[in-house]
């Protein structure tokens, strides 16, 4: 087996007086589809911001592609769909094409006008998420689910190895959520992109992910989602750190 693409060791993190992450240890293997779940405020966003180098590492070690995160030069290998992406697009006068074009700015030619190659990358990214016919539409005119697909296209436009998505289904209506997870599975299986999917909705994602991480300040479960499903409700609630409702998932 090849080396993990991300390793997290003994990571702690605090904001002011509040400890939000405690003794976090896990690896992400190449090709995995990791579900990172936990209730609101459990530290999920903080953890991935540390992995992305957006938030400064306070204690412990994180490596990405074999390099310490502090020294890691991304060069498009790790990409990101932020929790906030949705709220930015409201009322922003930009076309789908302009939004996806942001996904190719790490190319060397960032200071020059669009090149043929970049435009090709933008088009093929939109094809992968089935949004190519919307290329000239205004981002604000799309539904939540369509916008989220555009953000995925932006994130994969430069062919990343690892894609991290922070609660991407917030703002996507429930009929489209399943389709959305299918799309992620496709990216994972057909394009070989390693995925980290952050969610507070544990039930919906267990059928899709290959690894399940339950976070609530510290990691309460890390392993196979099927094993997790076979536990009793009570055991799972304890691991998740919050009451789990098994019957309905209509958020």
């Amino acid at each position: 087996m090849s080396d993990p693409i991300v390793t997290v060791q003994n990571v702690y993190h605090r904001y002011d007086q509040q400890t939000v992450l405690e003794n976090i240890n896990f690896n992400i293997e190449e090709g995995a589809f990791v579900g990172l779940v936990g209730p609101n405020g459990s530290g999920k966003t903080t953890l991935i911001k540390l992995m992305l180098g957006i938030e400064k590492l306070q204690r412990g070690n994180i490596t990405a592609f074999g390099q310490p995160i502090q020294k890691f030069k991304n060069k498009g290998r790790i990409s990101y769909v932020s929790q906030k992406a949705n709220s930015f697009s409201r009322g922003f006068p930009a076309t789908v094409k302009e939004v996806v074009s942001m996904g190719v700015i790490h190319n060397q030619r960032r200071f020059l006008p669009d090149q043929k190659k970049d435009q090709g990358l933008v088009k093929s990214a939109l094809q992968k998420v089935n949004m190519e016919e919307y290329i000239n539409r205004n981002i604000g005119d799309l539904s939540g689910g369509q916008q989220q697909r555009v953000f995925i296209a932006r994130a994969i436009a430069n062919n990343p190895k690892l894609l991290i998505l922070d609660e991407p289904t917030v703002g996507v209506d429930s009929q489209n959520v399943e389709q959305f997870y299918d799309l992620l599975s496709k990216l994972n299986q057909e394009l070989g992109i390693t995925l980290v999917l952050v969610s507070h909705d544990i039930g919906a994602i267990t059928t899709y992910v290959t690894d399940l991480l339950c976070l609530n300040r510290s990691i309460h479960y890390h392993g196979n989602p099927n094993e997790f499903e076979s536990l009793t409700d009570e055991q799972r609630s304890i691991l998740y750190g919050h009451q789990i409702n098994t019957i309905t998932h209509n958020h």
Binding site: K49, I54, A85, I105
Partner: peptide, 11 residues
């Protein structure tokens, strides 16, 4: 448009 994405992209 999205400062976090921009930062991850190396802006």
């Amino acid at each position: 448009f999205d400062s976090e994405f921009a930062i991850v992209s190396g802006v």
